[in-house]
Design a protein around this nucleic acid. Sequence first.
DNA 1: CAAGTGATTAGC
DNA 2: CTAATCACTTGC
Length: 149
Amino acid sequence: MITEVEAYKGPQDKACHAYGGRRTPRVEPLYGEGGTVYVYLVYGMHWLLNFSTAGEGRPEGVLVRAILTDPDGARDPVVGPGNVSRYLRIDKRLDGADATDSKQMWLEDRGVRVPARCVRRGPRVGVEFAGPYWAARPWRFWIEQQEDA
DNA sequence: CAAGTGATTAGC
DNA sequence: CTAATCACTTGC
């Protein structure tokens, strides 16, 4: 279960790999139809898992930052995008896959209802290079368990 | 807080 | 071709 994501909002978002309409081979999957998997290597050792979310030609997506590995949250969450990919054995091979029609990677709606009060929002992580304005956009979202939830 | 790490990219 | 960059993690 995905419990934390960050949004990257296309050409105008300075933290987005497609900033300014940049369209290099690496970011091409981000320009794909919604559900296209975008995986890339950062800092020479960490694969980061993203899903393209807009439409063909619109380079917007979400980065998966944390997951729960069991339905009840009894086990510790896997926190940090590099750790998520290591846990799921994600690497370059999944880059460009179609998550709406793939045996390697897909998403399931299991009908879990998350109360609005459990949803937190804040600035994205590690995007200071994009400058103070874009680094401050509250486009990271995560779920926080409540005592009474 | 610094190091480790290597694909990717822009710029000659 | 070269050099800079970088959506991170770990360990001090």
